[in-house]
Design a protein around this nucleic acid. Sequence first.
DNA 1: CTGAAAGCGCTTACAG
DNA 2: CTGAAAGCGCTTACAG
Lengths: 338, 338
Amino acid sequence: MKNVTLKQIAEALNISITTVSKALKDYPDVSKDTKQKVLALAENLNYIPNSSAVNLRTQQTKIIGVIVPTTVHHFFATVIKGIIKAAKKKNYLVILMQSEEDDMQEKKSVDLLLSKGVDGILISLSNNTRDFNHLEKIKNHDIPLVLFDKISKITKCSKVVINDQKAAYDAVAYLIQKGYKRIAHFRGDLNPQVSIDRFLGYKKALLDNNIEFDPSLVYICNNNDDFNDGYESAKKLIEIHKSNVDAIFAITDMVAIGALKYFNDNNIKIPDDVAIIGFSNWFMSSVITPSLTTVDQPGFEMGKKAFKLLYEEIKHKDKKIVHKTIELETRLIIRNST
Amino acid sequence: MKNVTLKQIAEALNISITTVSKALKDYPDVSKDTKQKVLALAENLNYIPNSSAVNLRTQQTKIIGVIVPTTVHHFFATVIKGIIKAAKKKNYLVILMQSEEDDMQEKKSVDLLLSKGVDGILISLSNNTRDFNHLEKIKNHDIPLVLFDKISKITKCSKVVINDQKAAYDAVAYLIQKGYKRIAHFRGDLNPQVSIDRFLGYKKALLDNNIEFDPSLVYICNNNDDFNDGYESAKKLIEIHKSNVDAIFAITDMVAIGALKYFNDNNIKIPDDVAIIGFSNWFMSSVITPSLTTVDQPGFEMGKKAFKLLYEEIKHKDKKIVHKTIELETRLIIRNST
DNA sequence: CTGAAAGCGCTTACAG
DNA sequence: CTGAAAGCGCTTACAG
């Protein structure tokens, strides 16, 4: 079945394309009678406007692009859900792309999105993104851009984040207040801002509480396999610091669960021998044994807010844009691992 | 910055739009010299073809639509990853939508996708989809359609599935062979095909092994909260059948983990008191305590295959389409819960 | 209340 | 090797 066009409806009804178009869009200067006839036939023929033609005329696609490191990740999946949900409310569709933590893929994705003429772009940066020319390119094309979670500090655009430094600080301060003194940190790669900020929060909490910062207690998890990174880091930690460590602050729940698994496998008691605290409040953290103390990171909310910010910029594209940064609340969830 | 058009390049170079267009697309009937000049300027001006215009001319968008029940689900997230990855290879972009297990949302999503003029559609049906008019609509519009995982048997189109009946049969047969005799089934909603098939496989395995099928051992999990459904079903099961049940075959890992949690909370030993087997091989099933025996369901593969099937149909749209059904292999993963 | 016409930016069959 | 022209399907300023 070939797609129905305005022309076909016009010919069938013996009126002009203009009138059909206006009738369908409920223009006031079309007679009730005509409108009815057009609507009825359009319905009957299952008329669907050709988007490409509409886009070409109106210069917008009602599609946004989203780039995340990966879809297979509880937090990002939740953010995506929030984005799609908020977008749907405004009749926007979402093209989803993944960088797979590869800056080249991220840059290529931006180009593709730009060539598709999306109305706006939402990005959470890959761990290996070190220059931001592609973000500048988006801005040069006058396409609204909002970064979320994995952001670049120096890029001027709207952002939705949590206060990673504060969240990490609170988590570690809680450990200290519970009496833990030798607190290790399983951190992420050196590059991403969230990784830097969580590390800084960790360090600051120690110093503010007169606990010496010991670099040998910091392990870097950057092999793109959080679970295994956590597992291996826990192993190394125990080999070196056996009875000289009493807690771990892990950069993500996945890293924490890797560590937890190692301890479970090796009869090291949590939290008696070593306490663990994670980050994100991934569903799994609540059902693992022992259940994991963690920082709740509102992914769904982040997705919705990110779209809303983007939508505002799309709507007011002509006006001078004022970039906003929204900081979402986090919350420490205390469970049995601490 | 306003977007650069062919016209601007043509004027700057004092040649026709036609020639610019041809040069950019490397037509053989353009001189080397001209090509070079055009390419250089296009590069320099950061020229990006206007997709809407191209689409309108070529009558394709190079975008496909994907509808899944939800993105926050390990299996679907994995399938999505596979789809996006395979699509990227063919220069296709993916619009992602979610039905949230709501048939009305699913139908509306189809309409939106159709109006965007996507070149093809991939769907995994919601649990509450009971009529398939929207699928027929897609076919009536001559848009290629491929169903995956949650399919409708009566719809004539290509499909990518696993053999749910056989996979369930094998899982239950394994339990029987291990010596379990009173095997409960925590099934899904009555409607979805996968739920029906896994139930049938369960029943057949019992009968083939001369074990009486006891309907009171079958619990329906259909509150859209698999974990809790599993937890509550386990509770009821124990209340009623306490020492008269020795194993559970759960329709998904999430349901299995809910049950496992209940048993862990209530000092019921797995697998000594009750064995559990799940379905999907969600990452979590390998790290929970005890680790979960389950059926591996190849999500990434399913996503890639689904796109490939769709792509073939898009490419050969003019020809008579032969619908294919691809059945992917599953594999029983034996761990500590059985 | 209706419609002719221009134009969005591109591609391609055709003429020269 | 180059370019004028038609046309994809729509929207909208303008004339009547």
